[in-house]
Amino acid sequence: MNKEEIGNFLLRAILGVTFFMHGLSKFKGGLSNLAGWFESLGLPGFMAYAVGTIELIGGIALVLGLGTRIFSVLFILIMAGAIIFVKFGAGFLGNGEMAGFELDLVLLVIALHLLINGSRFFSLDSMLPTAKKKLNMEIIQ
């Protein structure tokens, strides 16, 4: 265990909790309402269900350290979509009517960091047989 792994764990845990909470709020607010809003933006309504589910399940998975890189890719795509289709017009800090894309960009970059570096500390992924075999091969080399 080193400082880098502890840092990766903290980023993974906070990103997971953040996405879980955002997904939970989407379900509580009604995904059908969100689907209507997506359609008003010119996006397919079913994407609201996909985004809410990915945020909820992916958030839990990140906290547990399960599929970190896979969910990081999905979170990058979600945040890129949020920036491009929703927040970019409001600017970096917002325009008084809507929040800017600063938080979305930070979440995107954290997910990108986890995609590149992974996070093995306190992760279920590191307990899987294939992950242990890979880790042993890294130690040998």
Rank of each mutant, 00 (worst) to 15 (best):
W37T: 10
I76M: 09
L62R: 01
L124I: 13
D104M: 02
G59E: 01
L93A: 13
E39Q: 07
E55H: 00
R69H: 00
L105V: 07
G29D: 04
G29H: 06
F92K: 00
I70F: 04
E138S: 10
L66D: 02
I76Y: 03
G7K: 07
G94I: 05
N117D: 12
M1S: 10
L62Q: 00
I110T: 05
F46D: 08
A61P: 04
A13V: 15
S40M: 10
N95K: 09
A13Y: 14
L108T: 05
F121H: 12
R12L: 10
M1K: 06
A131V: 05
A50K: 03
A131S: 15
I54F: 00
S119P: 06
K28G: 04
L24W: 10
E102Q: 07
L128I: 07
K87S: 02
L128D: 09
A48H: 05
M47R: 00
M79T: 02
T18D: 04
N8I: 12
E102I: 03
I6G: 02
V17H: 07
A61F: 01
T53Q: 04
F38C: 04
G91N: 08
F19T: 02
G65C: 00
M79Y: 07
I116Q: 09
S123M: 06
T130M: 14
G118K: 03
E97C: 10
E97G: 15
E55Q: 09
G42P: 00
L135K: 13
H113C: 14
E4G: 09
F88Y: 14
K133L: 15
T53A: 09
R120H: 11
S126N: 11
G67C: 05
Y49W: 15
F85M: 10
N95P: 11
S40H: 13
I84H: 11
L107K: 02
K132G: 10
V63T: 04
G16C: 12
S40V: 09
L34E: 12
K26N: 12
V106F: 12
K28Q: 15
K28C: 10
N8P: 00
I57L: 14
A50Q: 10
L24E: 03
S25W: 13
G100I: 02
F71V: 01
N8T: 10
G65F: 02
F122W: 13
T18S: 11
L124N: 06
E55F: 00
L56K: 02
G7C: 11
K87L: 15
I54P: 04
E5D: 13
T68I: 06
F88K: 11
L135P: 01
I78C: 00
S32G: 08
A111L: 05
R120S: 12
S119Q: 03
T53V: 09
S25D: 11
G96M: 12
R69M: 01
A48N: 07
N136F: 13
K133E: 15
R120Y: 10
A80F: 08
D104F: 01
S25G: 06
F88Q: 11
L64C: 06
V73S: 01
A50F: 15
W37E: 14
L107A: 06
M21P: 03
D104P: 04
G16P: 00
L124C: 03
I60K: 02
I140P: 00
N2F: 08
